[in-house]
């Protein structure tokens, strides 16, 4: 061993490499079918976060944080919140806040149905996924310094 090994063993890394994508895809499935089956934005967002958390755990935080940092996650979180608010505000098109403003709501139990609910699910998943990841990243990266910056 000439250098410090980062992250866990080769077995874990390989397994994580294989499964992380599948987990991510499963999260996207849960989000996109949130309005026709159990699940939705919150559950899907958490699952997507778990894919990222798995990568951090397997490969070590130094490697992973170069790709995705807490500040990017925080921006995504704000973006998700603003998107959700924008969808809610778009209800004013029909005269009411949070109005499901699509006239044609589609056939029930198909993927493209239920008006604004799938859009809300996407916004919520962005908010929850990025927010949870930011919390995890901040707690992982918290260095015990005497800086005044809030964690």
């Amino acid at each position: 061993m000439n250098k410090e090994p980062k992250g866990m063993t080769l077995i874990v890394k390989t397994a994580a490499r294989l499964t992380a994508g599948v987990i991510l895809m499963y999260g996207i499935y849960i989000i996109s079918h949130g309005h026709v089956s159990p699940g939705g934005g919150f559950a899907g967002g958490v699952i997507i976060t778990l894919a990222f958390v798995l990568v951090i755990l397997a490969f070590g935080k130094e490697f992973s944080m170069r790709k995705v940092s807490a500040s990017i996650a925080s921006s995504f979180e704000s973006f998700g919140a603003i998107m959700f608010l924008a969808i809610a505000l778009a209800g004013f098109l029909g005269g009411y806040f949070f109005l499901n403003f699509f006239i044609n709501k589609g056939v029930p139990f198909t993927l493209f149905s239920a008006g604004i609910i799938p859009l809300c699910n996407i916004a919520i998943s962005l908010k929850v996924g990025a927010g949870l990841f930011a919390v995890f990243a901040v707690l992982v990266m918290l260095k015990f310094t005497n800086g005044k910056d809030k964690g």
Binding site: S75, S78, L85, G95
Partner: peptide, 23 residues
Amino acid sequence: MKENLIPIFVILPLAGAFLISLL
């Protein structure tokens, strides 16, 4: 439609908070 005044009280600070956190 004077009722439309009411949700503004929640929308305005909420939108402000997230816009500030973005920009």
